[in-house]
């Protein structure tokens, strides 16, 4: 039986959720939902930085990745097509 600490469980769970949200962002045809999924991935990445004791990078990631990038991408999606063509 391998022994595994709570810290490693948290890291593994966050890795799984990050990969899952990144794959879902590619898989969606609705680009608005895809942008929201990217924001979720960025938020989990910010949590990952905080758990790895880099709060500076966590604040920067939460501000730029989860707020500003999402705003700019939503503006772009609203100005162009919402649905991705096959």
């Amino acid at each position: 039986m391998i022994e595994i600490s709570l810290f490693e469980i948290a890291l593994i769970l966050m890795s799984v959720f990050m990969i899952a949200s990144a794959i879902i962002a590619v898989w969606f045809k609705d680009l608005l939902a895809s942008v929201i999924t990217l924001a979720v991935m960025s938020l989990i990445l910010s949590l990952y930085f905080y758990v790895l004791q880099a709060p500076d990078v966590a604040i920067a990631e939460a501000g730029v990745g989860a707020a500003l990038t999402t705003a700019i991408l939503i503006i772009t999606v609203r100005a162009t097509e919402r649905m991705e063509e096959d």
Partner: peptide, 12 residues
Amino acid sequence: FFIFMFYSAYEI
């Protein structure tokens, strides 16, 4: 890539 991230999160 999944196995790599899993292993590196376990071996940290």
